[in-house]
Amino acid sequence: MSFKLIYLKTCCCGYLFQFISDFVNYMLLLSEKWLSVDADYDDKMLKHLLRIMKMKDKILSTGILFFTCLGAAQSAIAYEIVCPKSVTVIYAKPDLKQVPEGWDVSEKKQDLISLSGVGVYSGKPVDLAVLKPNPVIINGQKQQLGWQVNREYDNPYGGNWVGCSYNYYEVELTRQIDRSMKTCWAVYSQDKYQATLAKLVCSTEVVE
């Protein structure tokens, strides 16, 4: 989830809450006018309007609680990095120093290889500083494959990077993790063909 998406959702929630508040106030204004103009107005309608008046505080307090909880949940999870589920490799003909007499070098056609896993590195993956995952608790939920990222000793190496591996590290796609993130965890699933799907979800929350 990107920062822009969170911002848009927060704005939409704010506008929705304002709409609810304005609607309640409008109904209250109408009820006051109806009560003052026509004393013989239908009893059921009057009871309904009075019920709205009594529920005003409850509606507003519930709305405030809902949007507060929603905002807290969205602020905890800042974004996620989704690994492509497959990549296509185009192989070149191997250039051997010397081809044994009587032998030819076979050419391998292009191949579609599937995602096998996701990991986190301290610094660029080319340096092979793979971080060991550990359980973390985020928003009350335990995640088995978690990492603390952008720590003080990661900074000299350029922070942390995520690596999506294909066919068990035959190919790896890498991307730097946003420097504002403090905790990340891997989430695995499968598509309808039982192929592996994986993403790295990151949060600004610091966990021990």
Results as ranks from 00 to 15, higher is better:
S36K: 14
A186Y: 03
L65Q: 06
P156D: 14
K109N: 10
E172D: 11
S21A: 03
S122F: 01
D42K: 14
E107Y: 08
R179V: 08
V201G: 03
S180D: 09
N25A: 14
Q74D: 07
T174W: 03
K182S: 15
K199R: 10
R179Q: 11
Q18V: 04
F66H: 01
K182H: 15
L173C: 10
Q110E: 14
N25L: 14
L128A: 10
V118R: 01
S36W: 09
Y91F: 11
S114H: 11
K93E: 09
Y169M: 13
Q194E: 11
S86M: 00
I177P: 02
P156H: 14
S86R: 01
V24G: 00
S31T: 12
S86H: 01
V99L: 14
K142N: 12
C12T: 02
L5R: 12
C13Q: 10
A72W: 07
S189C: 06
S21R: 04
W34C: 06
I52A: 09
V207D: 02
V87S: 05
I64R: 12
D40C: 05
W103C: 09
G140M: 03
P133N: 00
C164L: 02
Q194W: 04
P133Q: 02
V87K: 01
A78M: 11
G14R: 08
R51Y: 14
N25M: 14
V105A: 08
G119H: 05
D40M: 06
D111P: 02
G14Y: 12
L46C: 14
Y41E: 14
S189N: 09
I81T: 10
L16M: 13
V130Y: 08
A73Y: 00
I113E: 05
L96T: 06
D127L: 11
D43E: 14
V37K: 11
G14S: 07
L46V: 12
L30Q: 15
Q18Y: 13
E205H: 08
G119V: 02
Y157F: 12
Y41V: 13
